[in-house]
Design a protein around this nucleic acid. Structure first.
Length: 334
DNA sequence: TAGATTTGACCCGA
DNA sequence: TCGGGTCAAATCTA
């Protein structure tokens, strides 16, 4: 039963790789990468049948996984966009935003549609800079590296709850804000204590559009790296991680496909084993166009948060066990 | 029982 | 002094 599941997963990856290879000559528009139909795109019947056949090959779990991982991938796009004033994939974002903005507006107005992707729309990044000060020990009302995004409320489920962004957050406060119709919620990274992760976010619904959340991120997640006091991971994990780092610089989507295959053949455990190395690998690989694609794929295949959006649901015994193991080791140390 | 959420109180920058 | 941000005890939940 398990082996059959593994076969299904491998077949799904192979199908995904075929799709990537098919589009190598003419890279698909970013919308298709995210399963969005390109606006006004005319597809021939033959292509449509071909795509449908390939899509049928993809396991339902994988599709769900890709869909749920999309938000984190977009988050990485956004993060990279924010960290690089000159984003090598600027055209990707702008095209996608243009498309999605119109789609999102339409959805928000009609509250219709059958997909529930979440639109992450960058805003002016230097948010709150007017309120910043120069004191050395920031505590309140600081906004260094604050990144603001706006996301629509989930189309399904409770619209009061902000959409997931791939990380797990713990709410630690809520305040009624003056001249705002809706309260502001304060979140910390769930792993703040264990990883000393400084990431925080503030979430507030817009007055003029209650179906849109404005999220202000503070700090960067450090919870993707192993805790400082933790012992080195087992040899096979280290090897897989090293492999993943060295393989994560595909110069094209075909290399990405190869990367996928190699990753699977490496045992698949790297996908969900322990804390994600998204941020770590990004630094290890350095900035660059290739790295960006790898990061996005990494976010999808190596989604590191403790949320359900990862390989964890495919390999539930790996990642959670690793984290549990670290937890236990850490407790031993204490 | 541990972890997450709620909520009133407190801190502190503007 | 006001109000945003955080703390921490109480409460909830799996």
């Amino acid at each position: 039963m398990i082996s059959k599941s593994c076969d299904d997963i491998i077949n799904s990856f192979l199908a995904a790789r075929e799709r990537l290879n098919d589009h190598q000559a003419a890279p698909p528009p970013p919308e298709t990468l995210f399963n969005y139909p390109a606006a006004g795109e005319m597809v021939s019947h033959e292509q449509q049948v071909h795509v449908e056949q390939q899509q049928q090959q993809i396991d339902a779990n994988l599709q769900e996984w890709l869909r749920s991982s999309m938000t984190q991938a977009v988050d990485i796009v956004h993060t990279q966009f924010l960290s690089d004033q000159r984003n090598p994939f600027e055209h990707v974002i702008s095209e996608r935003e243009t498309l999605m903005e119109s789609a999102s507006t339409t959805r928000l107005r009609s509250m219709g549609g059958d997909h529930h992707h979440h639109h992450v729309q960058p805003m002016n990044v230097s948010a709150d800079s007017s309120r910043g000060s120069s004191s050395s020990q920031p505590r309140h009302r600081r906004s260094e590296n604050a990144r603001a995004v706006r996301v629509p409320a989930p189309q399904t489920g409770n619209p009061e709850i902000p959409p997931e962004d791939g990380y797990t957050w713990r709410k630690y406060g809520q305040k009624e804000i003056l001249n705002s119709n809706y309260p502001r919620s304060y979140y910390k990274c769930t792993h703040q204590k264990f990883y000393n992760c400084p990431a925080k976010k503030k979430v507030q619904r817009l007055d003029d559009n209650p179906f849109t959340f404005e999220i202000l991120y503070h700090g960067h997640h450090t919870c993707h790296m192993p805790p400082p006091s933790s012992p080195p991971p087992p040899a096979e994990i280290t090897q897989e991680m090293t492999q993943s780092v060295t393989m994560q610089q595909p110069s094209s989507t075909s290399n990405l496909g190869r990367w996928l295959t190699m990753d699977v053949s490496a045992g698949g455990a790297s996908g969900g084993a322990g804390p994600s190395t998204v941020g770590y690998q990004r630094e290890a690989a350095g900035a660059g166009d290739q790295c960006f694609v790898a990061n996005m794929a990494d976010a999808m295949f190596n989604s590191g948060s403790s949320s359900s959006n990862s390989m964890e649901f495919l390999f539930p015994s790996t990642s959670s066990n690793m984290e549990d193991k670290w937890n236990q080791e850490d407790k031993k140390d204490n």
